[in-house]
């Protein structure tokens, strides 16, 4: 009977000690941490998650006078309209077509440019080129489209040069067939340089001994690029491609909106601009919400699939 109180006392003592050390180890005043998180959390709830509740409008015939609660429910009506309306189908096709052209032409260019920059031996020259090619990324789309308009309009510098060479002037900005190439070219001009950063970073991590060994084995420049440089950036390229595929529905609102005019509306109207014209300008709130939600859901599914694929092929995925 006697040892029991002793053990009991010991246990109580050790528990008390443990509590005390825990009190020291565990950061006090967690409530201050929540206070710090609160403004940001409120932001996300208000401007990111509350709009998600607003997606119910796509199943209603929303009327500003009736509000969310009293607007009539119409089920999948707007989604059915979307797939029956030739204009909406045209818009979906335009979106996919522009994205496809971007992936085909604009996606590989930063990789090629990065390899070119990586091959430069003179550090100063390399730095100079890098600082020049990053610049357009920081210009606004209004400025970039503005520059293109100034260069390509009927009495702009490009058409003046064509005239000098006795070539018929080309109405670049009002021809439907020039719209998509111009969109892709603008993205190439603006973003190719910026896109090289991550790839150059991956290349900086390549062990120089690999190149030395390759030279010993008699590899020439092309073989070095093919067998050392490209494999070194393969996983970076795969991850960038996944991200790109996930945003196939995203063609960027500002650029397309700024380039659109009545002549190019047929070939250039994409999901983002369509939602703007329908919802904001024509007040067809519910239909525009439905189109936007369709875009978002398809985008989400694509990212998840792309991520799965990347994991399957052993590239780790993005989340």
């Amino acid at each position: 009977m006697e040892p029991k109180p002793v053990t009991g006392r010991l246990v109580r003592f050790s528990v008390r000690m443990k509590r005390r050390t825990q009190r020291i180890r565990r950061p006090p005043h967690d409530r201050y941490l929540y206070l710090l998180i609160l403004p940001g959390l409120l932001y996300f709830l208000l401007y990111k998650y509350l709009p998600m509740l607003g997606l119910v409008m796509s199943f209603q015939d929303y009327s500003p006078f009736l509000g969310f609660w009293d607007s009539p429910w119409v089920g999948w009506k707007h989604f059915r309209t979307m797939f029956a309306e030739p204009e909406a189908l045209r818009v979906i096709l335009n979106t996919l077509e522009i994205s496809f052209l971007q992936i085909l032409f604009a996606f590989p260019l930063p990789i090629i440019l990065a390899i070119m920059i990586n091959e430069v031996r003179l550090t100063l020259y390399k730095r100079l080129i890098q600082s020049l090619v990053y610049l357009p990324h920081f210009l606004s789309w209004v400025v970039v489209v503005g520059i293109f308009v100034v260069f390509l309009k009927s009495d702009g510098i490009v058409n003046n040069l064509l005239k000098m060479a006795s070539i018929q002037p080309i109405p670049f900005l009002t021809s439907p067939e020039w719209f998509k190439p111009l969109i892709v070219f603008q993205v190439i001009w603006k973003e190719s340089g910026w896109g090289t950063i991550l790839i150059l970073a991956a290349l900086a991590g390549v062990n120089p001994q690999l190149y030395e060994a390759a030279v010993m084995d008699g590899a020439n420049r092309w073989q070095q690029i093919w067998h050392i440089t490209l494999p070194a950036i393969r996983s970076t390229i795969v991850i960038l491609l996944i991200l790109r595929l996930g945003s196939v529905m995203d063609t960027g609102f500002e650029q397309i909106f700024l380039m659109l005019n009545p002549f190019t509306m047929e070939v250039g109207n994409v999901l983002d601009t369509y939602v703007y014209f329908k919802g904001i300008q024509q007040g067809d709130i519910s239909f525009a919400t439905a189109v936007g939600m369709f875009k978002g859901v398809v985008g989400l599914i694509l990212v998840v699939i792309a991520n799965r694929l990347a994991r399957k092929y052993g590239e780790g995925g993005i989340y």
Binding site: K48, G54, L55, M57, G246, D272, I280, G292, G296, V297
Partner: peptide, 11 residues
Amino acid sequence: LFQAGMIPTYM
């Protein structure tokens, strides 16, 4: 990965 989109945010 997912955003509600232009119109609900506008509302």
